[in-house]
Protein backbone atom coordinates (compact mmCIF):
# COMPACT_ATOMS: atom_id res chain seq x y z
CA UNK A 1 0.00 0.00 0.00
CA UNK A 2 1.57 3.23 -1.14
CA UNK A 3 0.38 6.72 -0.44
CA UNK A 4 0.80 9.11 -3.29
CA UNK A 5 0.93 12.76 -2.35
CA UNK A 6 -1.36 14.99 -4.39
CA UNK A 7 -0.35 18.34 -2.90
CA UNK A 8 -2.56 20.98 -1.36
CA UNK A 9 -6.20 20.42 -2.37
CA UNK A 10 -7.82 22.88 0.03
CA UNK A 11 -8.74 24.96 -3.03
CA UNK A 12 -10.73 22.05 -4.51
CA UNK A 13 -14.23 23.22 -3.76
CA UNK A 14 -17.36 21.18 -3.10
CA UNK A 15 -18.81 19.93 -6.36
CA UNK A 16 -15.56 20.16 -8.30
CA UNK A 17 -13.04 17.53 -9.39
CA UNK A 18 -9.41 17.38 -10.49
CA UNK A 19 -7.58 14.68 -12.39
CA UNK A 20 -4.08 13.39 -11.54
CA UNK A 21 -3.18 11.72 -14.81
CA UNK A 22 0.08 10.11 -13.67
CA UNK A 23 -1.31 8.22 -10.67
CA UNK A 24 -2.06 4.57 -11.30
CA UNK A 25 -2.81 2.94 -14.62
CA UNK A 26 -5.59 5.29 -15.73
CA UNK A 27 -5.03 8.38 -13.61
CA UNK A 28 -7.05 9.28 -10.54
CA UNK A 29 -9.89 11.78 -10.20
CA UNK A 30 -10.27 13.54 -6.86
CA UNK A 31 -13.47 15.40 -6.04
CA UNK A 32 -15.11 16.94 -3.01
CA UNK A 33 -18.61 16.25 -1.64
CA UNK A 34 -19.80 18.07 1.50
CA UNK A 35 -16.22 18.93 2.42
CA UNK A 36 -15.02 15.36 2.05
CA UNK A 37 -12.54 14.27 -0.63
CA UNK A 38 -13.28 11.21 -2.74
CA UNK A 39 -11.08 9.55 -5.36
CA UNK A 40 -11.69 7.14 -8.21
CA UNK A 41 -9.81 5.82 -11.22
CA UNK A 42 -10.29 7.86 -14.36
CA UNK A 43 -11.78 4.97 -16.27
CA UNK A 44 -15.39 4.06 -16.92
CA UNK A 45 -16.33 0.47 -16.03
CA UNK A 46 -18.53 0.20 -19.12
CA UNK A 47 -16.00 0.94 -21.87
CA UNK A 48 -12.60 2.44 -21.35
CA UNK A 49 -13.26 6.16 -21.30
CA UNK A 50 -12.03 9.06 -19.20
CA UNK A 51 -14.60 9.98 -16.57
CA UNK A 52 -12.73 13.22 -15.92
CA UNK A 53 -14.09 14.46 -19.24
CA UNK A 54 -17.62 13.89 -17.97
CA UNK A 55 -19.60 15.97 -15.57
CA UNK A 56 -19.65 15.77 -11.80
CA UNK A 57 -22.77 16.90 -9.94
CA UNK A 58 -23.84 16.19 -6.40
CA UNK A 59 -22.47 12.72 -5.77
CA UNK A 60 -22.61 11.50 -9.37
CA UNK A 61 -20.05 11.37 -12.16
CA UNK A 62 -21.47 10.86 -15.66
CA UNK A 63 -19.33 9.33 -18.37
CA UNK A 64 -19.37 11.64 -21.39
CA UNK A 65 -19.41 8.80 -23.91
CA UNK A 66 -22.47 6.65 -23.18
CA UNK A 67 -23.90 8.25 -20.06
CA UNK A 68 -22.96 5.63 -17.47
CA UNK A 69 -23.21 7.08 -13.97
CA UNK A 70 -21.42 6.29 -10.72
CA UNK A 71 -21.57 7.34 -7.09
CA UNK A 72 -18.18 8.96 -6.47
CA UNK A 73 -18.29 7.98 -2.79
CA UNK A 74 -18.70 4.26 -3.28
CA UNK A 75 -18.03 3.68 -6.96
CA UNK A 76 -21.42 2.01 -7.40
CA UNK A 77 -22.98 2.27 -10.82
CA UNK A 78 -26.24 4.17 -10.91
CA UNK A 79 -27.56 3.47 -14.37
CA UNK A 80 -27.07 1.62 -17.62
CA UNK A 81 -25.08 1.02 -19.67
CA UNK A 82 -22.70 0.37 -16.75
CA UNK A 83 -23.18 -2.94 -14.97
CA UNK A 84 -20.31 -2.79 -12.52
CA UNK A 85 -18.74 -0.21 -10.19
CA UNK A 86 -15.70 1.92 -10.83
CA UNK A 87 -12.54 1.68 -8.75
CA UNK A 88 -12.53 4.06 -5.79
CA UNK A 89 -9.46 4.84 -3.65
CA UNK A 90 -8.97 6.04 -0.12
CA UNK A 91 -7.96 9.68 -0.06
CA UNK A 92 -7.14 11.70 3.03
CA UNK A 93 -6.06 15.20 3.89
CA UNK A 94 -3.45 15.84 6.51
CA UNK A 95 -1.58 19.02 7.35
CA UNK A 96 -2.80 20.76 4.23
CA UNK A 97 -1.66 17.90 1.97
CA UNK A 98 -3.79 15.27 0.32
CA UNK A 99 -2.75 11.66 -0.13
CA UNK A 100 -4.34 8.87 -2.14
CA UNK A 101 -3.70 5.19 -1.68
CA UNK A 102 -2.55 3.59 -4.85
CA UNK A 103 -4.06 0.20 -3.99
CA UNK A 104 -7.65 -0.43 -4.87
CA UNK A 105 -10.26 -0.17 -2.11
Amino acid sequence: MNDVELGDLTDLRDGTMRVFADVGEHGVVVCRVNGQLHAFDDNCSHRDARLSEGRFRGTTITCPVHGAQFDVRTGEHRCAPATSPIVVRVVRESGGRAFVESTEV
Binding site: E53, G54, R55, T60, T62, V65, H66, G67, C79
Partner: peptide, 17 residues
Protein backbone atom coordinates in the same frame (compact mmCIF):
# COMPACT_ATOMS: atom_id res chain seq x y z
CA UNK B 1 -32.59 4.19 -26.42
CA UNK B 2 -29.69 6.62 -26.47
CA UNK B 3 -29.84 7.23 -22.73
CA UNK B 4 -31.40 5.11 -19.95
CA UNK B 5 -34.86 5.86 -18.57
CA UNK B 6 -34.96 8.55 -15.91
CA UNK B 7 -31.28 9.38 -16.22
CA UNK B 8 -29.84 12.85 -15.87
CA UNK B 9 -26.28 13.47 -16.92
CA UNK B 10 -23.84 14.96 -19.36
CA UNK B 11 -22.60 14.17 -22.84
CA UNK B 12 -20.27 15.82 -25.34
CA UNK B 13 -22.17 14.10 -28.12
CA UNK B 14 -25.11 11.71 -28.22
CA UNK B 15 -23.47 8.39 -28.99
CA UNK B 16 -25.50 5.21 -29.17
CA UNK B 17 -23.97 2.50 -26.97
Amino acid sequence: QLRPPGSCGFANQLKCP
